[in-house]
Design a protein around this nucleic acid. Structure first.
Ligand code: FES
Ligand code: FES
Lengths: 156, 156
DNA sequence: AACAATAGGACTATTTTAGTCCAATATATG
DNA sequence: CATATATTGGACTAAAATAGTCCTATTGTT
């Protein structure tokens, strides 16, 4: 349903690992690889993306490494997905640039994009601290409210 | 965020189209192609998947075609995704079969899978009839409730 | 019989993803 | 200053998923 790549999963593992070590001691990639069981080159690759995405900060040189840029409860799942999955639109609406050739006779009007945005908003409420040892379930009760009124259920 | 393939987007277009024509007159693929602006071979391919997934029923032979298997408000978005995107797990947890080599020292414990299941549950509340001419937004207010208690916000 | 459709799958090309590796740069330390 | 430790940035290959087209067989109508 929500499909994330392996790299993103790795990234989560890494972030959670970083959240569980001493916050101000930079943790080198090799240590993270050992701690998570992931291959070192892969860990390095993911860490670079996380650093560019400002989720971790890096220190170079001896005694360097990575540490979280913020507290674990100040990093949310939407950010993690943004950084590791890219800005990816849900669909390009069967076209490439922003204008759709089918638009004139299209009755869908980007419903999936809207749903995706709604899900993203929900993701901002899930924090890195929630990802560590998560509950057995994430009972996500949701409500869709439509301004135009034709969607107005409060719950199932 | 929620990434769906083009084929799934096409499928939505097709289903919405079928929802807007006479319900009991089978609609041939060629007509759907013309009505949606999609290429015929693509439409045919998607319709086959929809038929196998029991979302549409087909009639062969002259005067044949496809029609919705159920009323538009009896088909939900989760089903559409199941049929067109496959059963796809969100991640394989960095492994192939059901047992994960990292499991012993893993602190994540399939958080993404759980989130995905929650999102899927939310998707069952969105119906095909909602996808047609959707509201300008899908304000999806959600609540995460944790049985283990460490997730307990009611709203933002 | 002729025609109109779907069923099923093969097939190719393109794109995305995964994974590894290397050369360059920065930093701490003795 | 020399050396060892680390990140940075990108190149590179292999594998897998996606998109799109097309062909043949079957089914049903007239
Ligand atoms: S398919 Fe592009 S606007 Fe609907
Ligand atoms: S990565 Fe497989 S159980 Fe956590």
């Amino acid at each position: 349903m929500l499909r994330i790549s392996k790299l993103t999963d790795y990234g989560t593992l890494i972030l959670v690992h970083l959240a569980s070590v001493a916050p101000n001691k930079p943790c080198p990639a090799s240590e993270i690889a050992a701690g998570t069981g992931l291959a070192l080159p892969t860990v390095q690759k993911v860490l670079k993306k996380l650093a560019r995405g400002k989720l971790v900060v890096s220190s170079r040189g001896a005694d360097g490494g990575y540490r979280l840029a913020r507290e674990p409860d100040a990093i949310d799942a939407a950010e993690i997905l943004d950084v590791l999955e890219g800005p990816l639109a849900i669909t390009e609406c069967s076209h490439d640039d922003s204008h759709c050739e089918l638009e004139s006779n299209c009755q869908v009007g980007g419903a999936w994009q809207k749903i995706s945005r709604a899900i993203r908003a929900a993701m901002t409420e899930i924090r890195l601290s929630d990802l560590r040892n998560p509950p057995t379930e994430f009972p996500l009760r949701y409500t869709i409210l439509s301004e135009s009124g034709h969607l107005g259920r409060t719950d199932k």
